[in-house]
Each structure stands twice: as structure tokens, then as C-alpha cells.
Amino acid sequence: MTDPSTAVLQPTGRLNMVAAPAFKHLVEETVASGQARIVVDLGEVTFIDSSGLGALISGLKATRQAGGDLRIADVPEQVMTVLRLTNLDRVLRAHTTVADASDDW
């Protein structure tokens, strides 16, 4: 059961300097529309760079400021590696599935 205050976002392809600004904007719009609990399904993301990480951090801050949270699910290997190397796996814990991430807010 999806809580109406929860949004699932599914970026695809490369979450790099080209795509990150639009993704950041989408998160901001989602929070502004009243959905401050966001699960980002990363299953279709083939590559992330530091711009993409910045967009996730920006989203994490925006959701928390609105009383919610941002969680990530189905994290591919390259994304997981980059999260570990930047120590961001400590603030963006990887959930196996969207359902797992949507549990127990």
C-alpha cells in the first residue's frame, strides 16, 4: 500500500551533470506538492557522478526540512561504489527494494 504522502521517483540512465539539475528540480517540486517522503528507485540508473550525488543530498535536505525523508532503493553497483567512496552510504542507506524503503517511515 502506497502512502499518499510518499512519492517514488525513478531516474533512468546517467545521473550526471546533464541530468542532475532536472532531477533536483523534480524532488523540489515533489516536496512542494506535499510529498515529503520520497523513495528514489535507482534500479535504472547506469551511472552517477558527484553532481548526481549532490542532487540526492539536496533532496535529502529538502525532504527533511519538510518533515519527511529521502531513501534510495535498488542501488546498482557503480552507484553503491561511489556512495561508499564518498562516505555518503552513511547518510543515504541503500534499501533493497522500493517496498523495503517505503516501510516504517
Binding site: 557522478d49 558527484s50 549532490g54 555518503l88
Partner: peptide
């Protein structure tokens, strides 16, 4: 060095490149 503040949105590019 990565940024001390994990909530900082920038500053990870060249440290990440150096790491790999």
C-alpha cells in the same frame, strides 16, 4: 579529502577521481 559535512552538495568530484 571528502567534505567534512555529509550534507554538503559539492566538493566531491576531484577527491572521488583521486580515490579511483
Amino acid at each position: 579529502a571528502m567534505p567534512d559535512d555529509p550534507m554538503q552538495e559539492t566538493g566531491r568530484g576531484l577527491p572521488l577521481a583521486t580515490a579511483v
